[in-house]
């Protein structure tokens, strides 16, 4: 990592600490912001967060590893989450997954080579009455069919 890059990360985290405070309770929102912007929380960012909140880096790492939506490895620009809970499952979720996997050429849990998409399963996203449900980033799509899923992907791709 270049020094300038490091400095930029540090500055960014210092600003987040100004916004959310340096108490440990600020850990979640700070990490969420970093995650949102960089799509992951880098080794360096973890250590800087630890330093500024006066906790151990391993505690930050441990925290990240606990929560599904935080990660330490870079993910795709768009994260596709498909609900795998039973109701969506019975509404033909697997056909949607298969279609997306074919379209993107990746399996669930993987990221496309161009880093545009990451495909994941999610546990119940609270759309069981309109399943199968799928989320792309913070937007939720319901009653998804294989055709609809592909249309959504091309829309997202832009």
């Amino acid at each position: 990592m270049l020094v300038e890059e490091k400095n930029a990360v540090t500055e960014e985290i210092e600003n987040l600490v100004k916004t959310y405070g340096s108490e440990r309770s600020a850990l979640m929102p700070i990490l969420q912001e970093i995650q949102k912007k960089h799509r992951h929380i880098s080794d360096y960012a973890q250590q800087e967060v630890a330093r500024l909140l006066d906790i151990h880096p391993v505690e930050v790492f441990s925290f990240i590893s606990f929560y599904s939506f935080l990660n330490t490895e870079p993910k795709g620009k768009n994260i596709i989450r498909i609900c795998r809970t039973i109701v969506c499952d019975t509404k033909n979720k697997s056909a949607v997954v298969a279609a997306i996997e074919r379209e993107l050429g990746i399996k669930v849990g993987e990221t496309t080579k161009d880093k545009k998409f990451t495909l994941e399963y999610a546990n119940c996203i609270g759309m069981c009455d309109q399943g199968p449900a799928m989320a792309v980033n913070d937007r939720v799509y319901t009653k998804v069919t294989p055709e609809k899923a592909i249309a959504i992907l091309s829309e997202v791709r832009g």
Partner: peptide, 10 residues
């Protein structure tokens, strides 16, 4: 609201 099958809070 994480219990599978719950969406009333939403």
């Amino acid at each position: 609201e994480g219990e599978p099958g719950t969406f009333k809070d939403r």
